[in-house]
């Protein structure tokens, strides 16, 4: 991507730990998570249930406190903000929820729903707010005929577009998109992704995209973090990660995802399912790992994130790249040649 290496990150998460219980019973759902997101970037967080991806979204959104670590947005530590300060600052980071049915007030009109955040943050006059909301909705394909309707009368895709309008109308620096398409039908998912991308081109908003649909992640994200039991096990630019996954969990995850183009390939099947808890020592994935199951080092020493491949590609594995799916139909797209296709 067109990232400047010298650019300062917009979002900087450092050593983030989030536990849901204290003391002896304490268990960190997120364990020492650190990463950066640069302005205008779309970073995807992928992983299966229990990996902590929704907890991460909530922690960044300051829905509840974190146990330790910091979340800096444009140099400001969000975890240190309280009360009024926090509420004021919220216009810069907004959340789009997964469920477009539960997250909109059924008693309000579509326009009122989108005007409300502007009002809360004291932006513009009533006339200006109305205009901002109307324009925002129009860009998301919801014209004049929708303004006075109740969300009850809208389809899932239309509701999700209202929820997106409500988040983006504030012109935030960061929008956290928590599974924004997983409740929608396929034909509508595409429209929502297209519209999100158009808005990003227009405003330069940065997206953190929490997603379990791997093909959507590959299509939509610049960079991807793979989470397993509260730890980042691999991170790389999307094209590189999908072409050349290095962590055995990432390899198995990609291999398990059905691909209509390659119905006959041989899958790598993992044994078992993620446990509720990380092991006390060793690699978080060791118990299910085809490589690490019986290896001493994997069972005893937790691997650190380290460079694997390009400088932007990091993986936390003692044996990166050892597990491979035979990729007869490789989907490697060298950067820069994308537009030629």
């Amino acid at each position: 991507m067109e990232l400047e290496v010298t650019e300062a990150p917009l979002l900087s998460v450092r050593n983030l730990v989030k536990s849901y219980a204290a003391g002896k019973n304490g268990y960190a759902v997120l364990d020492d998570v650190s990463f950066d997101v640069f302005p205008g970037e779309t970073v995807g967080i992928v992983g299966e249930s229990g990996c902590g991806k929704s907890t991460l979204a909530r922690a960044i959104m300051r829905l509840g406190d974190v146990t330790s670590g910091s979340v800096e947005l444009a140099g400001k530590d969000l975890t240190a903000l309280r009360g009024r300060q926090l509420r004021r600052h919220r216009r810069h980071f907004q959340l789009v929820f997964q469920d477009p049915f539960g997250s909109l007030d059924a008693r309000m009109s579509v326009r009122a729903i989108v005007e409300q955040p502007l009002e809360v943050h004291g932006i513009g006059t009533a006339v200006e707010r109305r205009e901002l909301a109307t324009d925002m909705l129009a860009r998301l394909g919801l014209g004049a005929e929708f303004l006075t309707r109740s969300p009850k009368t809208l389809s899932g895709g239309q509701r999700q577009r209202v929820a997106i309008a409500r988040a983006l109308v504030l012109d935030p620096q960061l929008a956290v998109l928590d599974e924004p398409i997983s409740a929608l039908d396929v034909s509508v998912q595409a429209q929502v992704l297209n519209l999100l991308r158009e808005e990003q081109r227009r405003t330069g908003v940065t997206y953190l995209f929490i997603v379990h649909d791997l093909s959507a992640a590959e299509y939509f994200c610049d960079r991807i973090l793979v989470l397993y039991l509260g730890r980042i096990v691999e991170t790389a630019p999307a094209a590189e990660l999908f072409a050349n996954p290095r962590h055995p969990y990432t390899v198995a995850l990609f291999s398990a995802a059905p691909d209509p183009r390659r119905p006959d390939r041989k899958r790598i099947l993992l044994e078992g399912e993620p446990q509720a808890r990380r092991p006390e020592r060793g690699c978080v994935f060791a118990a299910r790992c085809p490589l690490g199951k019986d290896r001493e080092i994997c069972r005893t020493t937790s691997p650190e994130l380290a460079q694997a491949g390009s400088p932007e590609h990091q993986t936390a594995c003692h044996f990166p790249g050892e597990l491979q799916e035979s990729r007869a139909l490789a989907t490697v797209v060298p950067a820069g040649e994308e537009n030629a296709r």
Partner: peptide, 24 residues
């Protein structure tokens, strides 16, 4: 055809927008 075109298939080029089906 429209349903298949709207899939974010693995390996699809990021530069081309996905097709979608208008209306409901």
């Amino acid at each position: 055809r429209a349903l298949l075109a709207s899939l974010a298939l693995p390996g699809r080029s990021r530069s081309e927008p996905l097709e979608w089906i208008p209306g409901a």
